[in-house]
């Protein structure tokens, strides 16, 4: 029995992956703010990779002849209280900020996704237990929680990663849980159960892929928050060492000069602001394209 319809589009062998990606790109390109943010973030990543090799000055070498110079052609962003070039320091510091925030969110997303899947899929007391713990964590403001954790573990970038990851867990758990609850009720999950699939298979092969777009969107937005949190912790002296070119630490070191040398605070602040904004706008754009349901 040959079906007419099956013979339509024999050349439809366009790889699905390609088709999906090009579709995504076509939609995404229309989101101008997100697109610009995307390029900005790409630029940041490039700087992260090659920054240390192309910066005009050694970010750590003091130059006591050029202390607190205003922006000029030689030092585009000026110099700090030790005569170090701020542009070079920001470029090198991008590595610290991005590494810390992305690894923290990645860690939080891993644990949160796992908890969310378990919680949403099994429901009942598992769900209640996990969600109540998350509620407790939610009750603390993010930064206060992070400060508390760093206070327990001691200052340092590694502990900042742990602290930021820790406060990302409940929000990932909750968002993945709701996506799981929705997917769990879908017919194809029931269909997989009717052929005898184990819970593990249903979760990982069928439910998890459905939650990925939500996770990607949320991940992007959370990176912005994490950059801010990491900078705040460094500003408070709980993160990076004061001498390192971390953005938050730079802000912290320069706050004494806010009256006399405005550029010292301005440029680190600006770069933090732009980076966080870029991640948030990118997240918004990705959400509109990947996960339009969750739009508020």
């Amino acid at each position: 029995m040959s079906d007419v319809q099956t013979e339509i589009m024999p050349e439809g062998a366009v790889s699905m992956k390609e088709g999906k990606l090009s579709n995504f790109w076509k939609d995404f390109r229309k989101k101008k703010p997100a697109l610009i943010s995307f390029y900005f973030i790409i630029l940041l990543f490039i700087i992260t990779l090659i920054g240390p090799y192309i910066v005009p000055y050694d970010p750590a070498a003091p130059d006591y002849n050029k202390v607190l110079e205003s922006p000029s052609l030689q030092h585009l962003f000026g110099t700090d209280s030790f005569g170090r070039d701020i542009l070079s320091r920001l470029a090198v510091g991008a590595r610290i900020s991005l590494t810390v925030s992305i690894s923290a969110v990645l860690l939080g997303a891993l644990v949160g996704t796992f908890l969310g899947l378990i919680s949403g899929f099994f429901g009942k007391w598992v769900d209640r237990a996990i969600m109540r713990v998350c509620d407790v964590l939610f009750a603390f403001p993010d930064l206060i929680l992070a400060i508390g954790i760093v206070a327990i573990l001691g200052p340092g970038l590694k502990n900042v990663v742990i602290a930021v990851a820790f406060f990302s867990i409940p929000s990932f758990a909750r968002i993945v849980r709701s996506a799981t609850l929705e997917t769990k009720e879908m017919l194809f999950v029931e269909a997989t159960r009717s052929i005898g699939a184990s819970n593990k298979r249903m979760i990982w092969k069928h439910i998890f892929p459905e939650t990925v777009p939500t996770i990607i969107v949320y991940f992007t937005m959370k990176v912005g928050t994490a950059i801010l949190a990491a900078a705040s912790l460094s500003f408070l002296g709980l993160g990076a060492e004061p001498s390192s070119p971390d953005w938050g630490a730079m802000l912290s070191n320069s706050r004494d000069y806010i009256d006399s040398s405005f550029h010292l605070v301005f440029f680190p602040g600006l770069i933090i602001f732009l980076t966080v904004l870029a991640f948030n706008l990118l997240g918004d754009g990705l959400r509109d394209v990947l996960d339009p349901k969750t739009k508020d």
Binding site: L187, S194, H206, E210
Partner: peptide, 29 residues
């Protein structure tokens, strides 16, 4: 004992290839 579902749009995992959907029962059993 197998089941055929009402809604053919919802009963196949949207992110799996036909090949994988059809091979899954064999992989399980």
């Amino acid at each position: 004992m197998q089941m055929i579902f009402q809604d053919p749009y919802a009963s196949l995992s949207p992110r799996m290839k036909i090949k994988d959907i059809l091979m899954e029962p064999l992989t399980i059993h």
